[in-house]
Structures are given as structure tokens and as C-alpha cells.
Nucleic acid binder design. Structure first.
Lengths: 327, 327
DNA sequence: ATGAAAGCGCTAACAT
DNA sequence: ATGTTAGCGCTTTCAT
């Protein structure tokens, strides 16, 4: 049988209430009694039942996180940041995934109303306003990690895409590059931020940027788009891709065309994935601080649970230009 | 206020017991009553409190997983597999990490004895026999994912390194390669399996393999070890690396030495990481089925919870040779 | 087929 | 400073 608080109370010749008090350092307890109780606890290896504590207090010391999937480096790193902070504060992390379809969302909502956790964190949640609204209405503290910043009304943590793109631009400018080709990804909010941050710096310096939108954020589309630009006679001395994969593609196309990187054309990516380190040449890129984003989000949630209201504006985590060889 | 089972009972004009029966399809309930109860449930949006159910039944429908860290592609993929299976069966996943030091282990043990979950899964747990024994003694169903296979006494899921290495060897042999250079990683169990599987095939064919142990499973060590072998006059027509990163290093050294891949030397890696796809040339490699391993482990745990005993031998998940360009 | 009541293991008023 | 007493929201005998 498991040892319960009643067992401890009996063996220490006190009431359950007293045991509870020493357990939680609450209320006044005689020093000697406390010691005795602690001894019994140690001797029996007693650990409070999480479920019972949760039922009695209404708090589970667990937070729920909903991520698109676990295998992508970005979400995995965010998760790591969240887990670190929560662990440090003695909170548990209950993970759910949306990648198996919309049922997952329902199930998550179920857990929310089942009070499986005290707060929850949504990482790039799918746009299903009904569920989101429902979650919001549940009264549970909710924070969102979403660079698309598409969920007003929720406390939010985002990476600073604009500043990152700006840093990339200034790095290129400092190296004397004046005619960049931008390989942009779709029309998400963060893509617009990157465009804005990059273009801003170049136009401020009196230069124009050539802008292409990629059909997909893949290596292939990066390659063909770059090759097309080359074939169309576009003159550019640098490439800024909205992701590392297309940057790799640009590298391919450039090599195929006999352009040297970075001598003839400098290339900058975005994300700082593993691939960037191992690219040939190693890719200069803007690091998306997944880990820090996760940490910030977790801290925000924890602060909220302690009574501090959520910040009204998105928390912006700085990005960082990682200079390697390609630019 | 949250709606409780008592609220539902009142509105449906039945007792809590009946609502509970309807909820769990247990015992005989009049069809009409059941319908009425379900209507009230739907109307009120009632969801049972997970904590209360847990307290009453002694089961939380949650399993705990302990991983070294969340950011590595291998553990992330295992986790994904686990999450998929659990989600499908309505189980929750509580994640802990050991990467912040040994406290994490203590905390995990605490949750175990706090009955936060029904079973737990250890992914490549650190060798701290005391804690492991303690966990084992807790009576909680525990499974281990650990290719090192170093924890006898625990139910275990592993990838078939030996067969994977064998497949790599046969692929090389079929291509007429007869003098392979093996770039081995440290003395773990799985490294020995790979060595054995690979050597077996080559010696059976009457060929000898050159064997080097890498100081580390990095790209650099793969490169220098290969370069050294070349400089030492070793003649080899193929390289089998125990991981993708050193295989990439071999590619580097080979290129630097003017050897063409795969014409002069074929290269095979192990893991099938992202890097393999994007290597130049794309790397032929043995896929470690992280996802399937996670799924198998989760299924094993679930089966155990339903009363089936754990298999006594490790569950072996097949690996797969992914043929690309390098071999 | 359904209800009443006890109890899961804890916390939190309220007494003393 | 400590004990008593109610719950928290559910499941589960045991009656009826």
C-alpha cells in the first residue's frame, strides 16, 4: 500500500492537518513536532498524492502545451525552453500535438475543461477560432507562441523577425553589398516583418531590393527561384532568404552558375537550423531563438499564475545574426 | 463555477451514480435515462474533473516520460511516436528532462511516487542505478527506450542496429566494394551491434574491414580520421560511419583528397538525420526508426496497463537502409 | 434500473 | 500550536 498523510500522522502522533502544515510550511508548527514529522516522512518515503492535492487545492502544478508537432526543430527547441523553466519551478508539462488532426484540438479542450492543468501554452495553434474562443472563455490562463501574431486577445511571445532581418541587411551593407535579392516565404505576418526589416535598412541606404516570393520554403524552390532570377538577368550581389532551406537552394543555384559565395554573391539565411552550420560554405543566418521564446512564454504563464496580469503587448524576444562564411 | 457531476445529476433528475454509469457505460442504465443524462451533459458542456476521477479510480490516464533532452532530433522523434499512440488512446503525456542535472531525476521519482501517472517511459536514462532501482521498486510499469540496452530487468525497446549495419554492408558488397573503412563511435552496446552486423557480412564474403574508433561522433573527427587513414596509405573503397555527422566528415576528407564519391569511394552513414538528405552528395544512410520506437514503447506500456505482462526480451524495431547518392 | 453513502488523499476553516 | 471537520468531484459497493 501507498503511504498516505494519515499514516504519517499516525506514526508521528499528530493530526493530518499538522502534517499538511509542515509539508507546506504553512501556519505555526512547533519546531520539535515539525522535526518529528519530517523524520517520519523521510523514514516512510512519503510523497503526497498529486491527484489528491490537486483536488483539494484546485491547482495541479502542471501546465498543458499544445504544439503542431514534436519533431520539428523549432517546436522541439521551444518545448525545451518551456520544460526547463517549468522544471525549475516544480511544474509539470503535459504535452499535446495537433498533427494528428482536429480531434487533437478537441481532446486538448477536453483536458482544459477537465482541469488537467493550471494554464496552457499554444504554439502556433491552427486557426480554429471556435476552439480558441472556447479555450479563452474557459478562464484558464493561456499564452500563445506564434510569430504570425495572429491571435489578438491572447498573451503572446514572438521572435523579433524584423530586427533580425534588419541585422542581416546591415551586415550585408557593411560588406559593401548594394543589390540584394530577397527570397521571401508566404504572406505570414512574420514574413512581412522580415521583409520590412530588411527593406528598411536598404532603402534607408538608398538601395533597391529585388524581391521574389517562393512557392515553398524548400531547398528546391530556393534553387529554382535563384536560377530564374539569374537567367532573367537580375543583377544581385547578395541573397537574403527567409529560411535556411531556400538559402541552401540559392547556394546550389549560385554554384551551378559559377558564382562564388561569398566573393561574388553573399548569402544569408534565416532560422539557424543545423543545416546552416553544415552547409557549404557554412551559412550566415539569423537565429530564431526558439529556446528563449519557450522560456519567456513559460515565465509569463508562471507569473500569471502568481497573480501578475499578462502583458498587453506581445513579448518580443531578440534574434541574433550568426555570421559564418556565406556572407 | 465549473459544472460538476452533481449539477448534471440534479438537472437530469437522477443520482450522481447514474450519471457516472452513463459516463463510463458501466452497469445497466435505462435507455431513456441515459439519453436524458447525455442531453444534460451536452447542454452544460460538462467534463469530468481529471483530478477527481484520478483520485477515485487510482488511475490518471497519463504516462510520464523522461528524456535526456527535447531538442535532439532522435528524442524528439521518439517523443512524437509516443505522443501519437497515447493521444490515440486518450492518454496524456507528462514530459520531464534530465538535461538540467540529477535533480531532474529526483523530481521525476517524486512524481512517480506522487502517482502523477500510471506508467512511465525512460528514454536513454542516465546510469544511476539507485534511482532506477527505486523506480523499479515503486511497482509502476516502466519501459525503457535505450539502444545501449544496459538496463536489464526493464522492458525495453531498441532499434535493430545490427541488421541496419548488415544491410549497409550488403549494399556495399552488391556494388562490388570489398575494402571498407569503418568509422566507429564509442564502446556502447549499439556501436558493438553495428560493428558486428557490418563485419559479419564482409567476413562472410571473405573480405577484411579496416576499423577506426572515432574520438567523437562529430564531423571534424570523421574528417581527420578519414584523412589520417588516407595519409597512412590505407586502401579502402568505401566508408561506413556509425553516424551521419562523421560520414559528412569523411565526405570532406575524401573531397579534399580528390577522391570522388561514390565513384572512387562509397560512403554510408547511420541515423538518417536531416543532414543526410542535404549532404553533398546526398548521403546513403541507415535510418534509425525513432518514431516507430516511440510508438512501440507506448504500445507496450498501454498493453501492460491493460493487464498484459511485458515481453521478457527487448522489442526490436527494424532499421532501414536509405539509398541516396553517396553509395 | 437507480439511489444512498462511503471513501479516494489531501487542504483549509474553524475550534480549542 | 494543534486537532476536528468539512469538503474537493468523482467511483463504487450495497441497498432497494
Amino acid at each position: 500500500m501507498r503511504v498516505t498523510i494519515a499514516d504519517v500522522a499516525r506514526r508521528a502522533r499528530v493530526s493530518k492537518a499538522t502534517v499538511s502544515r509542515v509539508l507546506n510550511n504553512r501556519g505555526e508548527v512547533d519546531a520539535a513536532t515539525a522535526i518529528r514529522v519530517r523524520e517520519v516522512i523521510a523514514a516512510t518515503g512519503y510523497t503526497p498524492s498529486a491527484g489528491a492535492v490537486g483536488l483539494a487545492t484546485g491547482r495541479t502544478r502542471t501546465i498543458g502545451i499544445l504544439v503542431p508537432d514534436l519533431a520539428s526543430p523549432w517546436t522541439a527547441a521551444v518545448l525545451q525552453g518551456v520544460a526547463d523553466v517549468l522544471e525549475e519551478h516544480g511544474y509539470g508539462l503535459l504535452v499535446s500535438t495537433t498533427h494528428r488532426g482536429p480531434d487533437a484540438l478537441t481532446r486538448f479542450a477536453r483536458r482544459v475543461s477537465g482541469k488537467s492543468f493550471d494554464a496552457s501554452l499554444l504554439v502556433e495553434p491552427p486557426d480554429q477560432p471556435s476552439y480558441l474562443a472556447e479555450l479563452h472563455a474557459s478562464g484558464l490562463p493561456i499564452a500563445v507562441v506564434d510569430d504570425r501574431r495572429e491571435h489578438p486577445g491572447f498573451a503572446c511571445v514572438v521572435a523579433d523577425h524584423r530586427a533580425g532581418a534588419g541585422a542581416a541587411a546591415r551586415h550585408l551593407l557593411a560588406a559593401g553589398r548594394t543589390r540584394p535579392l530577397v527570397l521571401a516565404t508566404g504572406g505570414t505576418r512574420c514574413a512581412r516583418e522580415r521583409d520590412a526589416g530588411f527593406a528598411e535598412a536598404f532603402t534607408a541606404a538608398g538601395h533597391r531590393v529585388t524581391h521574389r516570393v517562393l512557392p515553398a520554403a524548400t531547398r528546391e524552390s530556393g534553387a529554382t527561384t535563384t536560377a530564374d532570377a539569374l537567367a532573367a538577368g537580375a543583377t544581385f550581389d547578395s541573397v537574403f532568404a527567409h529560411a535556411d532551406l531556400p538559402a541552401l537552394g540559392a547556394l546550389d543555384a549560385l554554384r551551378a552558375a559559377g558564382r562564388r559565395v561569398p566573393e561574388d554573391v553573399a548569402v544569408v539565411g534565416f532560422d539557424d537550423s543545423d543545416l546552416a552550420t553544415h552547409a557549404d560554405p557554412p551559412l550566415t543566418t539569423v537565429r530564431r531563438p526558439a529556446r528563449s521564446v519557450g522560456e519567456a512564454a513559460a515565465r509569463m504563464l508562471l507569473a500569471n499564475l502568481e497573480g501578475n496580469p499578462f502583458p498587453t503587448d506581445p513579448v518580443v524576444v531578440p534574434t541574433e545574426l550568426v555570421v559564418r562564411t556565406s556572407a
